[in-house]
Amino acid sequence: MNSPEILLIDDEPIVGQRLRTGLEKMGCKVEVAQDPKDALAKIRGKRFDVVITDIMMPEINGIQVLETVKEANPDTQVIIITGFATSELAREAMEKGAYDMIAKPFKPADLRGMVAKAANEMGFTDIKE
């Protein structure tokens, strides 16, 4: 049985801590990054199935992460977490190939559902919310 590889990027440490357990219970392999620079290095070094990234981070923002992911591996799905969604930002993200967006504050179950859907579409059929 294959497990989807997931990278979770948010400069808020609590986000990674709380989401990791739930995602692992679903059967995913989860890596967490707080520093977007580390995250970019990880993306370049390894293939992830799903990347979940916050959009507003110091120095490197979510759009740049999205671009790097699509550059490294166009098949990887990217879910954007946003603190303050503007339509402009949403359009830019979708145009650049983001899978979906979720606005803070969100329930962990909502994000898990989004991840499960993406994983299912990628062929990880045994992943259930």
Partner: peptide, 21 residues
Amino acid sequence: AHELNNPINNIMLTAHSMLDE
């Protein structure tokens, strides 16, 4: 609003985690 969403999100995630587990 953006700034405020971060701690609120953290509270929500933590509370849900406690509820679930």
